[in-house]
Amino acid sequence: MSHSTTPTAGGVLAAAAALQDPTRETYTREQVAYLMRLAYDSGRTATHLADVARIHCASVDSGWTRQTYEQRVAEEMAEMDHVARAVAAREGRTYRVHPGGPVDWETGQPVRHLEVAA
Score class of each variant (00 low, 15 high):
Gln109Lys: 15
Ala18Leu: 15
Thr26Gln: 15
Glu79Arg: 14
His98Arg: 12
Ser62Ala: 02
Thr28Phe: 14
Arg96His: 15
Pro22Gln: 07
Ala9Ile: 06
Leu38Asn: 01
Gly63Phe: 11
Leu38Val: 08
Ala58Ser: 11
Arg54Phe: 05
Ala78Trp: 09
Ala15Thr: 13
His3Cys: 07
Leu13Val: 01
His3Glu: 12
Thr107Tyr: 08
Thr68Pro: 02
Val60Asp: 10
Val83Leu: 13
Gly63Met: 10
Val103Leu: 05
Gln71Met: 02
Glu76Pro: 01
Arg96Asn: 14
Arg29Gly: 04
Ala50Asn: 06
Ala78Phe: 09
Tyr95Leu: 09
Cys57Val: 05
Gly108Met: 15
Pro110Ala: 07
Val111Gly: 05
Tyr34Ala: 01
Gly92His: 12
His56Ile: 04
Tyr34Arg: 00
Glu70Lys: 02
Thr45Leu: 13
Cys57Tyr: 00
Gly108Glu: 06
Glu70Cys: 02
Thr28Lys: 11
Arg85Pro: 04
Pro99Ser: 05
Leu19Gly: 13
Gly100Asn: 08
Val87Phe: 14
Trp64Gly: 02
Tyr69Ala: 05
Glu106His: 10
Pro110Met: 07
Ala17Thr: 11
Ala117Glu: 15
Gly108Val: 12
Pro99Ala: 05
Met77Asn: 09
Arg29Phe: 04
Ile55Ala: 07
Arg29Gln: 08
Tyr40Leu: 15
Met36Cys: 10
Glu25Thr: 04
His82Tyr: 08
Ile55Gln: 08
Ala86Tyr: 09
Arg90Asp: 11
Val87Gly: 09
Val116Pro: 00
Ser4His: 12
Gln20Cys: 12
Ala84Pro: 02
Thr8Cys: 09
Ser2Phe: 14
Glu25Trp: 12
Ala50Ile: 03
Gly100Gln: 07
Ala18Asn: 10
Ala16Arg: 03
Val97Met: 12
Tyr95Arg: 10
Val83Gly: 03
Thr28Met: 14
Tyr27Thr: 00
Arg37Tyr: 05
Glu75Ile: 08
Ala14Val: 03
Thr68Trp: 13
Arg93Gln: 07
Ala84Lys: 06
Trp64Val: 00
Pro102Lys: 01
Thr28Pro: 04
Asp81Asn: 08
Thr6Trp: 04
Leu114Glu: 13
Asp104Lys: 09
His82Val: 04
Glu91His: 15
Asp104Arg: 09
Val111Tyr: 08
Arg85Ile: 11
Glu30Gln: 15
Val12Ala: 13
Arg96Met: 12
Gln109Phe: 14
Ser62Phe: 02
Val87Asn: 14
Asp104Tyr: 11
Thr68Gln: 00
Leu49Val: 06
Pro7Asp: 10
Thr65Met: 06
Asp81Ser: 08
Ser4Pro: 00
Gln71Pro: 01
Thr47Met: 15
Ser62Trp: 03
Thr47Gly: 11
Ala9Phe: 15
Val83Ile: 10
Gln71Asn: 03
Thr6Ala: 06
Thr5His: 14
Ala89Asn: 11
Val73Ile: 11
Leu38Cys: 05
Tyr34Gln: 02
Ser62Val: 00
Val116Arg: 09
Glu76His: 06
Ala53Thr: 12
Leu35Gly: 03
Pro99Ile: 01
Pro99Asp: 01
Gln71Cys: 00
Tyr69Ser: 02
Gly108Gln: 11
